[in-house]
Design a protein around this nucleic acid. Structure first.
Lengths: 193, 193
DNA sequence: ATTTGATGTGTACACTTGTTCACTAATGTG
DNA sequence: CACATTAGTGAACAAGTGTACACATCAAAT
């Protein structure tokens, strides 16, 4: 799994990886692959599971660092960007998998995103923010937020990891996106959509 | 190019296609490939160009059908969904390319999206909607709109083309996303972001 | 200390892959 | 018509591919 991730990190697309290629990168003979996975799709699914862990770690850190802050959004985006950098290959894999060729991986990632959105909704409910929104509308908002952040991933991962200027731009832009969405959510239904 | 698109339409990922595979699907001998393209990346770039045409056709139709409508957003989303269905393979290619393995294709698609967003901004300016927004903020809004629609593509393309119920759900959801964004844009800056 | 289960190895086979080269068929322009 | 360009062909090659099978290694449990 580490080998596959490393290749993705080097710019390859997961869908174009072969068993031999992965085992070569892992420094192991091709047949060893079958001790752990039935095929590449299987490997992909297990990567999705690990991706889940990465996302949960990120959520935990976001919750801890954000509670006593008045700049909720800016702070959260910062944490997201930091994690995306620290686990570049994982997030690369995630971005690829969303339109990947394995239906199962695709569904897995989508499901992680749904989970993330629902956790976000819970947090907002707990913090009594967006209290005027119905449950369904809050879910809608959180879904939109998560999508927007996920799309920013594409921007983020396409610039060099040490191009701090561009990364800063992306962070600012993403922050404004989210602010606009929350302004929309704040006036939702009150001025009749 | 048609052959490559056909394979993508059948569920394959563009990054995993080989020259022989494409020529086989095209009913032509492998060597013929080189008469038209230097390699698969080249083919991808030419597909991006054609994708540009598809998008422009879609924009033209949207402009024509939407001017005399009071449900701008709903109508536009409808046209988008219709085009995505009618050119499924093209949009599949677009969704894949955003996180694809060819940097050039990636940049090409991103550039098409920027163009699309700027055209949308022009239209809104011309229609005197969102007149209170600065040029920069209008661009921001349109970028967010285009991203949101592009992400919906992922949802749309992952359900069967004739599952009308799910497609309807996606259309409604996308419409609400855009409505929320425009509510946000409507109150932008006026209540201090 | 011996058995066991998991992991890794080496060899082998039948295909598929990208690319080359010299050749032929078709096409449209003077 | 003749000619030049473009598109398609067939054989060939070295290299890479997925997968199968019998065998080796080694840590942990008995």
């Amino acid at each position: 799994m580490g080998a596959a991730l490393a290749l993705v990190g080097k710019g390859r697309h997961f869908a174009s990886l072969g068993i031999r290629e992965v085992t070569r990168q892992a420094g192991v003979v091709p047949t060893s692959f079958y001790r752990h996975f039935r095929n590449m799709d299987d490997l992909g699914l297990q990567l999705v599971d690990e991706l889940g862990l990465v996302l949960r770690r990120m959520m935990r850190e976001a919750r801890a660092n954000v509670l006593q802050s008045d700049k909720l959004i800016e702070e959260s985006v910062g944490i997201f960007v930091a994690h995306a950098q620290a686990n570049r290959s994982f997030f690369l894999f995630m971005a690829q998998g969303l339109a990947g060729e394995s239906r199962a991986v695709q569904e897995g990632i989508r499901s992680e995103m749904r989970f993330f959105a629902s956790e976000l909704a819970n947090d907002l409910r707990r913090l009594r923010l967006m209290d005027h929104l119905s449950d369904a509308d809050l879910d809608l908002t959180c879904d939109l937020v998560v999508r927007t952040v996920a799309f920013s991933l594409t921007d983020l991962l396409s610039v060099s990891p040490d191009d701090d200027y561009q990364i800063g731009q992306i962070r600012k832009r993403t922050t404004r996106f989210l602010q606009m969405i929350f302004v929309g959510a704040g006036h939702w239904q009150s001025d009749g959509a």
